[in-house]
Amino acid sequence: MTVPPPKDLSETAPSSTLSNVELSVDGAIKTARIINPIKDERSLKPSVADLTVSEPVTADKISEKLEIYGGAIVKNFLSHEITDKIWSDISPHFKKRTWNGDFFPQQTTRVTSIVTKSKTVCEEYMCHPLYMEVAARFVGKKNTFIIGQDLTTAYSEPQHNSSTTLSIGPGATNQPFHRDDIIHHNIRKYREKYEYGYETAIACCLAHNKTTKANGATRFIPGSHLWDHQRIPQEDEVVYAEMEKGDAFFMLASCFHGGSANTTKDEYRNQSFLFMTQGHLRPEENIFIETPMEYFETLSVQALKSIGLAASQPYCGWFRDLEDPLHVVKPETLTGDDQFENTFKIVE
């Protein structure tokens, strides 16, 4: 048997976008032109007050803002005490790193995988009841499946996608506009109004100090979650997510956004970003390799589910012989009626 030489398998993969793009190279300059762009001139210009959820804050109110704008601000999402506790847990992990790209300015420092560095992040932030309910609406998945002669219903709850604390220092420049759902190759279609079921991730951003346009507040483009995949964002469409300490900015990953320039002399914009994704998708950040089992054992059952250390129904993310890894970390969760528990019985 003759084995053919290796080839670039990417050339065999289908594309949902490249068929509408013309690529060209002129010397060192590479350009791309959209062949048949969709005409869409919708531009929303809400104020920060328009984005802010009124009291009493509910998941319904947050969801309504997200449907319309793709973003929502919640005042006093976490108390100053909890916000400061998260900062004290995370800040010792800041290290000066050299970033050779242009996606993050040199003046931006960051700590990644903060769910593994602070139990407070897990229990008080990630598992906040409002965030859990909103995330369930946008990235939770519930479906029915035929298995043999039975109709089985399964719910895949949201899981941790990535968690980072960012500090933007004086002199930082604008971050390029981007959508965070590009990691899941999520292809956005032009829509007149929001439709549930197509979102792959949702973010919650916690302000550790006063966040302003001057010190680097997130540049967010309201309504861009309804745009076609290939519409290009412009600076004049921006709203700055300005917040006070303890406030939170909810944002769909399908929205264009980016950190903004810090034009101050001595202020830092300190914020913690926590993304949740669908339970059956690969998370952006791999938090399991470096995290000792002992840390996971200290977390609550809900935190373990949200962090992604539990099987997603019906059978995604199992361990060994179709065991739910949650039962390995927390044996007391074995109930006798779990679909994984009775699949295999190990005979001694």
Rank of each mutant, 00 (worst) to 15 (best):
V21E: 07
R33Y: 00
I38S: 08
P46T: 09
A49F: 10
D50V: 02
S54C: 07
E55D: 15
E55H: 11
E55T: 14
S63C: 15
A72C: 03
V74A: 11
W87D: 13
I90D: 01
S91A: 12
P92A: 06
P92F: 03
K95L: 09
R97P: 00
G101W: 04
F103G: 10
Q106T: 13
S113C: 03
S118V: 09
Y125A: 07
P129I: 03
Y131P: 01
K141A: 05
I146W: 10
Q149P: 06
T152M: 15
T164R: 13
G169F: 00
P170T: 04
T173C: 01
N174Q: 09
R179L: 04
I182M: 12
H185C: 06
Y190S: 10
E195F: 00
Y198A: 06
E199F: 05
C205P: 00
K213F: 06
A217P: 15
T218H: 07
G223V: 01
V239R: 03
M243C: 15
S254H: 05
Q278L: 01
E285V: 06
M293L: 12
A303H: 01
G308D: 03
A311G: 14
A311H: 07
W318A: 13
F319I: 13
E332P: 09
D337I: 07
E348T: 08
